[in-house]
């Protein structure tokens, strides 16, 4: 075999190995991944894991606006970062939890065409942001005028997702309540477009801290003193 062919073969094998083990293999395995059913007695809940899928239309808007540049969507393991211990990054929004929010697993993103795990954290993590959103109008307000909610925020103001329309007599049910400096003016109101609603639906669908089957049992077992 000529030197050239040997060279190319060597390169092919050296790169082919990680290509096969990191890409091809996992892709094939992932496609066989299916939801797992919960065991009502052991896990305390019914149904399957993961219980719900994210709102896909809204995820398209999320991709289009480039939210992934500043927001992550994964809670890291407690040995690597403070993620799980941070207030409001899980279901509990007000108090202090005894256990950290669990780190995310592969199945948490089952059903998503692409998981936007995030490039940087200029803003808080959004893996469980669905629990933070109690008021849709407030969420719309923070998209339309982020600095009216958090003065220090550097989030872009996504006004292109909203329509400023003339107020027709009674205030429209969907119109946003804005403080004066962000308000378009007397006689006008700001109404979300379908895309803004889809984006909020997507955000509300982001809840990734439901129990993992068998985890409760595993943690109880781990807590037992070793014999």
């Amino acid at each position: 075999m000529s030197d050239f062919r040997k060279f190319v073969l060597r390169i092919g094998i050296l790169f082919g190995l990680p290509w096969f083990f990191l890409i091809v293999g996992p892709v094939m395995k992932y496609q066989k991944l299916a939801p797992i059913a919960y065991d009502k007695d052991k896990d305390g809940v019914d149904g399957q894991y993961p219980p719900s899928v994210i709102h896909r239309q809204g995820q398209l808007v999320y991709a289009r606006e480039g939210c992934v540049q500043c927001h992550s969507q994964m809670i890291r393991s407690a040995n690597l970062g403070l993620d799980g211990w941070r207030k409001g990054w899980g279901q509990e929004q007000e108090g202090r939890t005894a256990e950290p929010v669990r780190s995310n697993t592969l199945r948490d993103y089952l059903g998503e065409p692409f998981a936007f795990l995030g490039i940087q954290r200029t803003g808080p993590d959004l893996a469980n942001v669905g629990w933070r959103i109690t008021d849709r109008a407030k969420m719309h307000q923070s998209f339309y005028a982020p600095r009216s909610v958090n003065q220090w925020s550097t989030m872009p103001s996504y006004r292109q997702l909203y329509t400023v329309q003339k107020a027709q007599g009674q205030k429209s049910k969907l119109a946003l309540d804005l403080p004066e400096e962000f308000h378009p003016g007397k006689g006008w109101e700001v109404v979300p477009t379908a895309e803004a609603e889809a984006l909020v639906d997507y955000m509300i669908s982001l809840k990734k801290d439901y129990p993992v089957p068998g985890m409760a049992a595993a943690m109880a077992a781990a807590a037992q003193p070793k014999k």
Partner: peptide, 17 residues
């Protein structure tokens, strides 16, 4: 294991807060 994303998932970590 393909199904293990966090080998420390069932470990208890001390609360650093």
């Amino acid at each position: 294991d393909f199904n293990v994303s966090n080998p420390f998932a069932s470990s208890r970590f001390p609360d650093p807060r």
